[in-house]
């Protein structure tokens, strides 16, 4: 992809979020990256690396300690409402209104994002059919399985047809069939509808399949950035998994059974 010709739709400028006394916990530290228009970008990292914090910062849910980010020419510090309007978010562990039906929940979400009622009803119907939930549209969400809830949350994230989508672990709770459908949806949204998609995940095959470029974050710092081929080449490994382990660190094979040896010594 000729990055020089593309517009950077998301650009972080030393974006940082520190917690604790004196900011000793660096959830996100001096993050500088660009995500281009129409691109599907993957942010990888182990648990607690700062992926969700980054997404929350870019969606103006929390405020940075230092730095800023520009989302479609809008500053996350100054144009909070407008940034929220042009982004859709599938959060990692979002709360659903379990006492609403799928139809009611999507109506509510559409109204929050000012989707005109004329468009909204048809769109809800289409999305429910797409996710094979149309027949259960009047069932309360409390009776839905985790996968079904995830589908509703994805539908809610795209209900206002935003140009930029943030998907935090989009397929983590889905069965293979639903996961395949979501992957196809993401691909189609990127390829046919020109959406810019920012995916957070630690499921490497998903990222490999969907993302044009990836960034690897660990302990708040961006430690690798590029296409998958570039990152594999940089680390001198053969697969993304090996590259990921090489960058973020892993457990040596001999350590895997060390606990058994210790038991033998004790007994």
């Amino acid at each position: 992809m000729g990055n020089n010709l593309l517009k950077a739709l998301i650009r972080t400028e030393s974006l940082s979020k520190y917690y604790g006394k004196g900011g000793e916990i660096k959830a996100v530290d001096e993050l500088n990256l660009e995500v281009y228009e129409g691109e599907t970008f993957g942010l990888l990292g182990p648990n607690g690396a700062g992926k969700t914090t980054t997404v929350r910062l870019l969606n103006c849910i929390i405020k940075p300690t230092n730095g800023t980010a520009i989302v479609n020419d809008l500053d996350i510090l100054k144009d909070e409402t407008e940034v929220k309007r042009i982004t859709g978010l599938l959060a990692e562990s979002p709360g659903l209104y379990e006492k609403l039906s799928a139809q009611e929940f999507l109506e509510f979400m559409g109204a929050l994002y000012d989707v005109p009622p004329k468009i909204l009803h048809g769109r809800i119907e289409d999305l429910l059919k797409l996710f094979s939930l149309y027949d259960r549209r009047d069932h309360l969400l409390e009776g839905y399985s985790r996968g079904m809830k995830q589908k509703i949350l994805i539908a809610a994230a795209i209900i206002h047809d935003p140009p930029i989508l943030f998907l935090d672990e989009p397929t983590s709770m889905l069965d293979p069939r639903a996961a395949l459908m979501v992957k196809d949806l993401i691909k189609t949204l990127a390829d046919k509808a020109g959406k810019t998609i920012f995916i957070c995940s630690h499921i490497l095959p998903i990222v490999e399949e969907l993302c044009d470029r990836i960034g690897i974050i660990s302990q708040g710092r961006l430690i690798a950035l590029g296409t998958i081929a570039e990152i594999i080449a940089q680390t001198g490994t053969k697969t993304l998994e090996d590259a990921f382990i090489a960058i973020t660190g892993g457990v040596q094979e001999k350590e895997l059974l060390a606990w058994r040896e210790q038991k033998a010594v004790g007994s």
Binding site: T81, K84, G95, Y97, L112
Partner: peptide, 15 residues
């Protein structure tokens, strides 16, 4: 105490 829905509100263009 439920804060799950809070993320929905905070991500939306609402004061």
């Amino acid at each position: 105490v439920q804060t799950g829905q809070l993320e929905i509100f905070l991500a939306a263009p609402i004061k």
